[in-house]
Computed example of a mutant assay.
Amino acid sequence: MESHEPEFNLTYSILLEQMHSVLFGRLDRFCTFAQLFLGTAVATDVANPIVSGLFVAFLAAIQITYQPSAKSAEAKLQLARYLEIRKRAPSLTPEQVQDEINSIASSDTEAVGALTHPAWLATAMQTGRPIDDAEWRRMTRLQAVASWFAGNHPKKAS
């Protein structure tokens, strides 16, 4: 195993968990704010109460079904585990670092597909790995928006 691979894997896992935590936290806060706003619109009879009520019910269903606040908290816990490995990494061999990563990887947040490529790009930038233009072109608009909303939109250096 190349000695830089565990560092890359650890950095990738840290960035991806961080992005998940931010994304799910922001999604939860957006749903809560929108519910309060739309609920007020219904109460003050500013908007069509049926349409506003349907949106409130839809947002509540999203929060109950997908539980973004719980997923955000789980991602924060997993992030803390990875940061603990990073803190101990200088005193470990690359194989030991990879073993520790593998031992906690089963607790990773279920990856949002739109975040995986942006997290890889951000990791490559942080670890100094060269990124060819084809990798930058692979990032879709959805991935760009998702990574921006998740707080870590990688930008190509000019």
Rank of each mutant, 00 (worst) to 15 (best):
S3Q: 03
D133S: 10
E7N: 13
L36P: 00
A89S: 13
M19K: 09
A122D: 06
A34N: 13
R26W: 01
D99C: 04
E74G: 06
W136F: 07
D132F: 11
T44A: 11
F149R: 11
E7Y: 13
I50F: 09
E100K: 03
N152I: 14
I131S: 04
W148D: 13
I104C: 01
D99Q: 14
I131D: 04
N9Q: 13
I104L: 01
S106Y: 14
A47H: 12
M139N: 08
L83A: 03
L142H: 11
E7T: 15
Q63G: 07
A80F: 05
E74P: 00
R138E: 11
R26F: 01
I85G: 06
K76F: 06
D108P: 00
G113H: 09
E135Y: 12
T116C: 00
R81W: 07
S13H: 04
V42K: 11
E7S: 14
H20P: 02
W136R: 08
A157S: 15
S69D: 11
A144G: 15
D28N: 13
R29D: 14
A111E: 04
Q18G: 09
A70D: 09
E110S: 04
E100D: 04
G128W: 07
I14Q: 08
A144S: 15
A124G: 10
A73G: 07
D132E: 12
R88K: 13
V42F: 06
P49T: 07
Q96V: 03
T65I: 13
M125I: 15
Q35L: 05
A105T: 02
E110Y: 02
L59D: 06
P6L: 07
Q18M: 05
T127D: 04
Y66I: 09
Q126Y: 07
A134D: 15
A75F: 06
S21M: 13
Q67R: 14
P68G: 09
E95N: 07
D108E: 08
Y66P: 00
L36D: 10
A157G: 12
Q18I: 01
G25S: 06
S158T: 13
T32R: 12
V145K: 12
S13E: 05
E135N: 10
L142G: 00
R81P: 02
Q18A: 00
P118R: 08
Q35E: 14
A57D: 15
Q98L: 03
V51W: 10
L92F: 08
A150S: 14
D108L: 01
A144E: 15
I62L: 12
Y12M: 03
V145T: 12
A43Y: 10
A124H: 10
E5W: 08
S72I: 02
G151I: 10
S158V: 13
